[in-house]
Amino acid sequence: MKRIGLFPGTFDPLTFGHLDIIERALPLFDKLIIGIGINSSKAPMFSAEQRLEWLNEIFKLEPKIETVIYEGLTVDCCKRIGANYIVRGIRYVNDFEYEKAIADMNRSLDGNIETIFLTCLPKYTSVASTLVRDVLRYGGDVSQFVPEIVLKTVNV
C-alpha cells in the first residue's frame, strides 16, 4: 500500500515554515499532496488559485508532490485523493493541543486516517501566515518569511 500524505492548510500566504514542513515530510511518503483548504468563514488575502500557482511553481520538479484545492472536511479530501495520512506542523505547545483535538475528531470520523505531527525548526516558530498578512497589510517587509515567488506577487 502506498503511503500518501495530505498536508492541508490555507497557505495564505505560503511561508518558509510551510516549506520546512513540506520538505521534511516528503521522505516519509510515496506521494505528498498539498491541500489548499477553502474555509468559508475566512476571507483570504490571496485567491486559492494564486496559492496553488505558488506551490506548483516551487515544486514543479518534485514528482512526489501534487496540489489540490478542497472545501469541506479534510478526511473527505483524504478519501477522494486516497491519502491515509494527514501531516500537520507544530510550532508551539498550544498548536499541539489544538491540532490534537482536530486529529482526534478526524480519527473519530475515519479510523483509517492517521495524523502525523512534525515540529518546525526553531527559526520558524514565529512565522505564521496570520502575522505575515498583518505585516503585508501595513506595508512591511516580509522577505524573511516568504519565498521569492510570493514576494514577487505581493510586490507587484
Rank of each mutant, 00 (worst) to 15 (best):
P122D: 12
T125A: 15
D110R: 03
L19E: 13
I69G: 00
G82P: 03
N155D: 08
K64W: 04
N84W: 07
S126Q: 14
I34K: 02
W54G: 01
C78H: 00
S40A: 10
M1Y: 07
P8T: 07
G17S: 15
T74G: 00
F16L: 08
Q50W: 02
C77N: 08
F96S: 05
V135I: 15
T125S: 15
S41K: 14
T74K: 04
T15P: 09
D30G: 14
Y98D: 04
D12R: 08
K152A: 10
F96E: 04
L28S: 07
T15H: 06
E71L: 11
I69P: 05
S108P: 03
R137M: 14
L6H: 07
V87A: 04
P63N: 04
V93M: 15
L19V: 15
E49V: 09
K152W: 01
I113V: 14
F117W: 07
A25K: 08
V154T: 14
L136P: 06
F145N: 06
E49Y: 08
K42D: 00
A43Y: 00
R3Y: 09
H18S: 08
A83L: 06
G17T: 12
R91I: 14
E62V: 05
I58C: 05
E49P: 01
N112G: 09
L6T: 03
V132W: 11
F11Y: 11
Y85S: 06
F11W: 03
G72M: 04
G9S: 02
L26R: 13
G5L: 01
Y124C: 12
N56C: 09
I69T: 07
D110Q: 08
L61F: 11
L136H: 08
D134Y: 14
M105N: 05
F46D: 03
Y124S: 12
G140E: 04
D95S: 12
S108L: 12
Y92P: 07
R107T: 13
E66R: 02
T10D: 00
Q144G: 12
P63D: 05
A128P: 09
V146T: 08
G37A: 14
V154C: 13
A128Q: 13
R133N: 13
K31S: 10
R107Y: 14
P122W: 10
